[in-house]
Design a protein around this nucleic acid. Structure first.
Lengths: 151, 151
DNA sequence: TTTTATCCTACTATTTTAATAGGATTTATA
DNA sequence: TATAAATCCTATTAAAATAGTAGGATAAAA
């Protein structure tokens, strides 16, 4: 249950582009610098965002990226979809998958609900919410219990 | 964002054990057969559940597993925890992680909320809910939009 | 025409996960 | 008391996914 680093970097890149002055595009090298990534690596991430038509730029030397839509019109699901084909927590709930056991599988409903929960969340939050600090989590205790990690 | 197959099989094994007649334990070979897994592979999964003290058995030839608690007292989070150290959708929100950018990271709140959402869901559903069919998902349209997968 | 920046594709390395394998231990039972 | 059935335990291999690097083509501003 890990979000890929590409998606994480992609979201941060979007936040950075969204936060720039409206008239000036943002360069890859600046994003790379502020996020401590090589320009070459960030390149993939930027290209994925561009292919998904979330950002655009002029060609040539004076390029630099801007959003194609207002931050309030870009959901996190849109950004996630630039890097992943969709949200699918287990293969066996995707459309064309056939499972011999699915007839009586008492777990599939649980996974479908989980999938839906995540999808609805991703779809309900926009880039605008993030850049205006409307999505925060104050309670420090959550990480103790739930997000314990390998040493 | 994939649930590991071990966790999936583990959940199904728990459902199978929970669904057995109360007085008779369930054998690995029977679970393996009904889920089309080798006994050797299922072995790992069963051992993880046992280490997590979710199931127990007698030693020797007439073994066979039973739940250590009532299904209503076993949450999906308990089962998940038998296979994973915790729920952690991105490394950078776990307790002892330090991120240079976290000072002004406008994404971390989003990830923490996601983590919490999943944790609360896992914690709110019990094995009893599953074996009595209380967790279902009827709407067929969800998979079209959200869970599209690679061909 | 040189420089800056994106664009595009291929590749390598790393890590994670899935699955197999071999044999030790325990105990019912023939 | 031997043997068969079952779990227990550890090591290893195989496969897949992901992260990250590399090289050069292209476009346009200076």
């Amino acid at each position: 249950m890990k979000i890929s680093t590409r998606t994480r970097y992609g979201l941060r890149a979007m936040i950075e582009i969204a936060g720039a002055k409206p008239d000036s595009g943002v360069f890859q090298k600046d994003i790379a610098a502020s996020q401590s990534l090589s320009v070459k690596y960030l390149d993939h991430i930027i290209q994925a965002l561009k292919t998904a038509r979330l950002i655009s730029n002029a060609k040539g030397k004076k390029s630099g990226y801007i959003l194609t839509r207002k931050p309030s019109e870009i959901t996190i699901f849109d950004i996630h979809r630039a890097f992943e084909p969709g949200i699918c927590v287990v293969e066996c709930i995707s459309g064309n998958y056939h499972c011999d056991l699915s007839e009586g599988c008492q777990a599939s409903g649980f996974w479908k609900q989980l999938n839906n929960l995540i999808y609805n969340y991703f779809n309900s939050i926009t880039l605008d919410d993030l850049i205006h600090g409307r999505v925060t989590f104050e309670d420090e205790s959550f990480s103790e219990e739930a997000s314990r990690q390998k040493a």
